[in-house]
């Protein structure tokens, strides 16, 4: 029997989607061995969050009222204390920016083996099996670990959200937070990527990635965007290089877009990018690598050199 402790995530007053997905994964693992699923809800309006997460498969929700927003020093202390109190075999956290800000610390502190960014996970006898990607998604691995003491962070949007209501016990957990050990202060938040253009409003996006190679070559995709009366956007490396401003970035840390047409040029389609554009009505990929993950979600594709195809496409629309 394996009990599972999963830690919900919220930000600025709202539960994040991955919290509902954690319930799905957690209840699958707990059910596989007849164990219980415990859920931790830490900081913010914990009663409201607990009510929202009172879902099918959850046995107990532990609430900890302490501060409003995520602070990793608070989370690390509380999760460690909850782990000791509940005594689960498996700790589940989101593989989010905040999940990665406390999960590895908790694992190290409790002596748990840390498995990050799992896209599939199962439990049988006393072995936990996780599927992970390596080499930027070019391969997947099946990884086994002793399920007695393991922390797994799960990738968002890989599991469906649990929606059916449940009848979990909701208990306030009396955590003892040592304030002198809280050495980070969250001072606020900043929205980035404002400015002259809103790529989320565009019907047609011409989006450019690493395959463009040089900054000078951006003129080529600008010309295409002009010819198609489209808006220019990009994947992360283009913004990292300072070639386009942050408000053009599509993906997990940029904008989520849903245009009629998304034309991905020289974009491989890493998972962080796909998170921002998979909802586009029609996805077109132009990329020399036929195995690039962008083709997994593309509706139309041209496996060829963008420096040959894009000028020809511009010509089509200039005639």
């Amino acid at each position: 029997m394996s009990d599972v402790l999963a830690v919900a995530e919220h930000r600025r007053g709202e539960l994040r989607d991955v919290s509902y997905e954690l319930v799905t994964v957690g209840s699958q693992l707990a059910d596989a061995t007849g164990g219980d699923l415990h859920l931790a809800v830490i900081s913010g309006d914990v009663d409201e969050y607990a009510d929202s997460l009172n879902l099918e498969g959850v046995d107990t929700i532990h609430t900890v009222e302490y501060g409003e927003e995520f602070n990793h020093d608070v989370y690390a202390q509380v999760v460690e204390q909850l782990y000791d109190a509940v005594g689960p075999q498996v700790l589940l956290t989101p593989n989010s920016v905040n999940g990665l800000d406390y999960g590895p610390a908790v694992a190290n502190s409790l002596g748990l083996t840390y498995v990050s960014d799992a896209v599939d996970v199962s439990l049988e006898d006393s072995t936990l099996t996780a599927t992970r990607e390596m080499y930027s998604g070019k391969v997947e691995t099946t990884t086994e670990v002793d399920a007695d003491a393991v922390a797994v962070s799960i990738r968002g949007a890989e599991w469906p959200a649990t929606e059916a209501r449940g009848d979990a016990a909701i208990e306030a957990f009396d955590a003892d937070v040592d304030e002198s050990a809280v050495k980070s202060t969250v001072k606020g938040f900043e929205e980035v990527g404002g400015g002259d253009v809103d790529i989320t409003e565009a019907d047609v996006l011409v989006s450019v990635g690493r395959g463009i190679e040089e900054e000078e070559n951006l003129d080529l995709v600008r010309d295409l965007a002009d010819a198609l009366d489209a808006t220019l956007s990009s994947s992360r490396p283009i913004v990292d290089n300072g070639w386009l401003p942050k408000n053009r970035q599509v993906g997990q840390s940029g904008k989520v877009v849903t245009p009629e047409f998304y034309i991905a040029i020289g974009i491989s389609g890493a998972v962080q990018h796909v998170a921002g554009m998979k909802g586009a009505e029609n996805i077109v990929a132009i990329n020399t690598d036929p195995n690039a993950p962008i083709y997994d979600i593309a509706d139309y594709g041209i496996v060829d050199d963008l420096f040959d195809v894009v000028p020809a496409l511009i010509e089509e629309f200039e005639d």
């Binding site: 930000r11 905040n98 969250v186 938040f189 970035q249």
Partner: peptide, 9 residues
């Protein structure tokens, strides 16, 4: 953080 939000700490 995700979604074009930065935490100042």
């Amino acid at each position: 953080l995700e979604g074009g939000v930065e935490e100042l700490t």
